[in-house]
Design a protein around this nucleic acid. Sequence first.
DNA 1: TCGATGGTTCGATATTTTTCGAACTTTGGC
DNA 2: GCCAAAGTTCGAAAAATATCGAACCATCGA
Lengths: 101, 101
Amino acid sequence: MRHARLPASEEIAIEDVFHALSDPFRLDVVRRLAVEGEASCQALEGDRPKSSVSHHFRVLREAGLIRTRNEGATRMNALRREDIERRFPGLLSCVLSARND
Amino acid sequence: MRHARLPASEEIAIEDVFHALSDPFRLDVVRRLAVEGEASCQALEGDRPKSSVSHHFRVLREAGLIRTRNEGATRMNALRREDIERRFPGLLSCVLSARND
DNA sequence: TCGATGGTTCGATATTTTTCGAACTTTGGC
DNA sequence: GCCAAAGTTCGAAAAATATCGAACCATCGA
């Protein structure tokens, strides 16, 4: 398996973060990870093909928002809370509290 | 001139805001408006054709980030600070302080 | 070792955005 | 009234994203 590109905290680009969060599915994933802590891809997939889910997780990963670790056969995803906070203080809490009624 | 769609504060959608801010030119416009207060389109255009500039200002307007008023023959743009702050507390200050060295 | 499960990757297609020129509108000045 | 300046709109072409099936790769359990 190829190494997923994972930017260091200092390398996280705000444009990439915004782009990643501009998609409803990805935004939802981020919010649910914030609540659930860690989750597998399929636990968050909303009835769409896995190649599509995988694509969105990759965007989140490459933007620097999530980290993925192998847990046996499944891959567990988690928000990179501290890294994001260090790079862009306040962003995450703002994203998480923003409601779109 | 057709009425530019300008969402009310409550209607501003976080996805639209993130999408608007995911473009470097638009992000730059927002930051400069934050500093300069008000500015005409051409004062902020970076050497690109006016139809392109106009497009980006429209995206910002429709996302709810800026407001445009007519000042004689020119149009002055300003950040909708209070509206954004009310809708998504903390977002703007976070965007403005985020540095991408 | 054989499946089954959970994801990734690839390739093709569809959709969305961006870009830019040209034509048009509005306003102000002469 | 006419011209220039500042933007908008339109339409077409280019570029970036998203979508989805199919093939593939790892790991676990039987």
